[in-house]
Design a protein around this nucleic acid. Structure first.
Length: 274
DNA sequence: AGGGCCACCTGCGAGC
DNA sequence: TGCTCGCAGGTGGCCC
């Protein structure tokens, strides 16, 4: 479910409620996530203070410290996860696996039906194997067309796979890869190594524009994404090609095509994208 | 070494 | 109505 805009929307939603709050209780109802939730999580966190809520790629990094521990929770929402701010006394529902109670009476509740998400703990999150080898953030200045151009020389891999590779750039998932390639006029199957610098500059702009616009609209809700208030995102109505196979291209009116690449739905216009 | 594919898991809609 | 099938926003790890 969540791509970078959805994770950023979640971060912005929870941060004001968590920062500088003390964790009073940790509840793990089902620790069988992608990796087991550490058994000593409550021991580590209860009584500690949350000082930061950051994002790296699609990971939320919740910085926590106390007299005895200092480190970060590494939280990933997987395909179906959501983090909600609970202000009332509502009972947990099915798939509400992890919960943090804070000293302001608010609870942070993690729901994840498919359990592809994770809750890990690290004292040195920057060096954690899941984080250390990630490529640049798509909205950071070091992500440039020149960088993509250089990295892609000699690569036969399709450009869509290339920009979805976390070592190249993080945070470009299936929806936004489709959208950005359409905006840039690049065919998703084109070999990454056979794209000009000029076109990579356009692609970088398209990725930035697409992700920024989605963040401004609170992310994309297709079926079930909800933000930290339990509300949907509104970028779905702005999607140009994703989920629109068979509809007419918004640029030229030609019917949009759908193919599968790496078992993922890939929608494009065969006239506008080369 | 690099690239492609599977697996992890539940829920839902389509089609029979 | 109720079953089965295929598909879903991610990504580490395995195999070729």
């Amino acid at each position: 479910m969540p791509e970078l805009p959805e994770v950023e929307t979640t971060r912005r939603g929870i941060a004001p409620h968590c920062e500088n709050r003390t964790i009073t209780q940790v509840t793990v109802r089902d620790g069988r996530l992608r990796w087991p939730v550490p058994g000593n999580l409550a021991e580590l966190l209860e009584g500690a203070v949350i000082h930061t809520v950051d994002r790296r790629a699609k990971y939320l990094l919740i910085g926590v410290s106390s007299a005895t521990v200092a480190g970060s929770l590494i939280v990933h929402l997987g395909m179906s996860g959501s983090l909600r701010v609970i202000t009332d006394q509502s009972e947990p529902l099915l798939h509400d696996h992890v919960e943090l109670a804070l000293d302001n009476g608010i609870r942070l509740r993690f729901n994840d039906p498919r359990r592809f998400g994770c809750w890990l703990w690290s004292e040195t999150p920057d060096q954690h194997p899941l984080i250390a080898s990630l490529g640049p953030e798509p909205l950071a200045p070091e992500f440039t067309g020149r960088m993509l151009y250089r990295l892609s020389r000699g690569k036969k891999t399709p450009v869509k796979s290339f920009i979805m590779d976390n070592h190249v750039v993080v945070g470009v998932g299936n929806i936004y890869a489709n959208e950005a390639l359409f905006k840039a006029g690049i065919h998703p199957r084109r070999a990454a190594g056979r794209i000009s610098l000029d076109r990579y500059n356009r692609l970088v702009n398209a990725i930035r524009e697409t992700l920024s616009a989605a963040i401004l609209m609170g992310g994309t809700t297709l079926r079930d994404f909800v933000n930290s208030d339990g509300k949907p995102g509104y970028f779905a109505q702005s999607l140009l090609v994703y989920g629109r196979s068979g509809e007419f291209c918004p640029e030229c009116g030609h019917p949009l095509k759908e193919i599968r690449m790496n078992q993922r739905s890939t929608v494009y216009c065969s006239k506008c994208q080369r």
